[in-house]
Design a binder for these strands. Structure first.
Lengths: 156, 156
DNA sequence: TTTATCATGGACATTGTGGGTCTATATTAA
DNA sequence: TTAATATAGACCCACAATGTCCATGATAAA
């Protein structure tokens, strides 16, 4: 259970875009050189981000990528869901086994779907995780970086 | 990014053990039949749980598995870490790229390790997740199941 | 002591997916 | 028109998840 490298690449690419916002569109060459990832692979990731409306892309000379909306409106959750997909973290593969019957045995005779209690806990965990990831944005990382720089400067 | 089926199996196996605690040791046959998973595969999972001190196993006639400690002392996190491993959820593969230099560029000249700010956020997320998973135990699932049964009974 | 019952560990097969490259094609600015 | 750029698709490889099978070892009951 780990986040993929693609998520890592996507996050850093977006941070770079946010940081170069004012200047110009950022081409795949520049991104690739900055992150140390091949152009081929990185462009796959950027395409995904475009398809989901996180970035815009313009082809042709002086083309490249830019954020499709302000950096404070791009959350960690947004990015992760684009790259990792939106399946739930945990799915009980056990729905019709005897296990769930066991857990509800005295309750009996209820015809409706019996929900898996393990899944219920895990879904709770996932909701918490999502909330945390919604509270952190590309912009919040930039702010943190600037704050750190300022701190460094003050110390000097 | 999903939890493996093995984690699912492990959770349900432990719940079954907790539920049958008073009676006798539970053999792999019974577990296998209850969960609908092959004995071969399930025994691999049970071995892992034993190696990490979650369950005890006794071979021989009338042998089988039992919880190695009370169900309220076996957390979701315990089980997940046994099955999924203990690597962190997110690792920045980018430590010496130009990206991190960029983020600290005005701060400059600090020789020490520059921590990845993306990783920092993700580590925070992981800590939250872990805390949630520590707060839920095998016993808490059983309690929930019993509560549900009682509720059903009252309605009748 | 023997034997039936149980768990363990290793070897192996299969499949899917993450991670990655390469090439052809479409689009745009100069 | 041409050079620069993104896009889409065809491939590739390595590795992990999932699973089976078999030999071995430990144990209690007979």
């Amino acid at each position: 259970m780990q986040f993929s490298k693609s998520t890592d690449y996507a996050m850093h690419a977006l941070i770079h875009l946010a940081h170069s916002e004012r200047r110009h569109n950022v081409g795949i060459k520049e991104l690739s050189a900055t992150l140390g990832v091949s152009e081929s692979y990185l462009s796959k990731i950027m395409s995904k981000l475009r398809q989901d409306g996180i970035v815009r892309a313009v082809p042709g000379v002086n083309g490249g990528y830019e954020l499709a909306r302000p950096a404070e409106q791009i959350t960690f959750l947004d990015v992760i869901q684009v790259i990792e997909g939106r399946q739930q973290l945990f799915e009980c593969s056990n729905s019709n086994s005897r296990q769930h019957g066991m857990l509800a045995e005295e309750g009996a005779a209820r015809p409706g779907k019996s929900e898996c209690l393990v899944e219920k806990v895990m879904d709770g965990a996932e909701r918490h995780l999502h909330q945390y990831l919604r509270d952190h944005t590309i912009q919040s990382v930039l702010d943190e970086a600037f704050k750190r720089c300022g701190h460094e400067a003050n110390k000097k």
